[in-house]
Design a binder for these strands. Structure first.
Length: 438
DNA sequence: GCTTCCCTCCCAAAGC
DNA sequence: GCTTTGGGGGGGAAGC
């Protein structure tokens, strides 16, 4: 009689069956262990030893590769950067009180665009996961849309059959969630190149158009299919209402933007499915309003060498590298966003210029602010780690010490504002505002 | 039925 | 200062 899988191996196989597209990191004591084909892949990609433990019902060795739990971060980062999804399976009860094998369950799926933990994540850049929702798309394969549209001059729809595209993107390490919609494939590809996401989810129907994937070949993000039903307007709209606990989306200015709703709802569903949390700190959607910001497409960004130079695509000699004297990671990311989308609103531009002028005129204030900011860690990412339950004691201490610096910062800025008000002798001198836009 | 041994990687401690 | 060793903790196979 053939032997059966041991209870622990059966546990592994049951969870694997639910998530065949993921590498399962199965917690066994102080190790995360992978078995079968996952072990072969992990061994090859992570350069760790492939060994064996136990036998299959067919009396073959079961491949095993594993890592100690405290080294999870760096291995997770390595696998996701190579485009793998990793399902983390934890022990859900105290082994001391377990009858038989310890209960285990999936606690999170880490994907290229949702990796939080690694120290190797560039703090100066956002790590975006993006969802694309085609609107007005005809069924693919029904006679060949590309053939039918060929020669008609309709460049908007000839590649995918869609009239417009909803685009939503989020950096879950900072809690930012943005959306927009664009007309035509060129604008879509520009938007992807501009925000440079690590991961893009899209309905299968879009991937069925080879011409689209061909045009997107230079994009370095990993593309994953996601069920078309999640992109449907009804499903997406309900997902958003339910998450934000509201009756309408008018507060986010997307109520009448069908494509943006579809992409945002799908992205939120995807994040909830993979992160297994309520994502309570994603508490707003920011509509990227192109009429308020100058549109710098990917070609312009590249030719102006804003973030990457033309020579070797590194940051050496770029505008960002020259002007970036920020002290905190949050400041670097904000500056990066400002350079990517310069303001068009005159009042807003003048407000920023006044703030810069006011600071450059006051060397003492500069020094005081810098002295405080130097002790402020990446509060956005620390809060996200706490919300996900992946923060350690050091993270909590870092957050405490960072928050402790805020009163002093506010005091320095308040004093500056008070001094400005009192100096009525120079009414046209630049002023510092505490508004969020500056 | 009980005990011992095995097994990934990492790091501290021991030994040289 | 460098190299070697063993513990960390689960689960299961093997030995007694």
């Amino acid at each position: 009689m053939a032997r059966r899988l041991t209870p622990a191996m059966q546990q592994f196989m049951d969870i694997k069956k639910e998530h065949p597209d993921c590498i399962l990191f199965f917690r066994m004591g102080d190790f995360y262990e992978t078995f079968f084909e996952d072990a072969r892949v992990a061994s090859k990609e992570l350069e760790i030893t492939l060994t064996k433990r136990g036998r299959t019902p067919a009396d073959k060795d079961i491949p095993l590769a594993g890592i100690p739990y405290h080294a999870l971060d760096s291995y997770l980062y390595k696998l996701t950067r190579k485009g793998y999804k990793v399902a983390i399976v934890e022990q859900l009860e105290d082994p001391k009180f377990a009858k038989g094998v310890v209960k285990r369950g999936l606690i999170r799926i880490v994907t290229p665009g949702t990796v939080l933990e690694s120290k190797e994540l560039d703090t100066r850049k956002n790590n975006f996961v993006m969802a694309i929702a085609p609107l007005g798309q005809e069924e693919p394969g029904a006679g060949g849309i590309e053939k039918r549209r060929a020669g008609t001059g309709d460049t908007r729809t000839e590649l995918t059959g869609a009239e417009s595209y909803g685009i939503a993107f989020s950096d879950i390490s900072t809690g930012e969630f943005l959306t927009t919609s664009v007309e035509g494939i060129d604008a879509l590809l520009d938007c992807i190149r501009k925000y440079n996401p690590c991961e893009i989810i899209l309905p299968e129907s879009l991937r069925e158009f080879p011409a689209f994937m061909e045009r997107a070949r230079d994009i370095s993000a990993y593309f994953f299919d996601y069920p078309a039903q999640k992109f449907s307007f009804e499903h997406a709209y309900q997902a958003l209402l339910s998450h934000f606990n509201t009756d309408s989306l008018s507060a986010f200015f997307i109520d009448d933007n069908k494509a943006a709703v579809m992409s945002s709802g799908a992205l939120l569903s995807y994040l909830k499915e993979t992160q297994k949390t309520q994502l309570s700190y994603i508490n707003t959607i920011r509509l990227v309003a192109e009429q308020e910001h100058m549109v710098l497409d990917a070609t312009t960004l590249r030719n102006l060498e804003i973030f990457a130079n033309l020579h070797d695509s590194s940051s050496k000699g770029t505008l960002f590298s020259v002007v970036n004297h920020t002290t905190t990671a949050m400041g670097a990311r904000l500056l990066s966003q400002w350079l990517m989308s310069p303001l068009l609103d005159l009042a807003g531009i003048q407000q920023r210029q006044d703030a810069v002028q006011a600071l450059s005129d006051d060397v003492l204030l500069q020094k005081d602010l810098a002295a405080e900011l130097r002790h402020i860690h990446d509060i956005q990412r620390l809060i996200s780690k706490i919300a996900y339950g992946s923060a350690n004691a050091r993270d909590v201490v870092s957050l405490r010490s960072s928050l402790a610096r805020i009163p002093a910062l506010k005091k320095h800025l308040s004093q500056k504002l008070t001094n400005q008000k009192q100096s009525s002798s120079a009414p046209t001198s630049p002023s510092l505002s505490l508004s969020s836009s500056s």
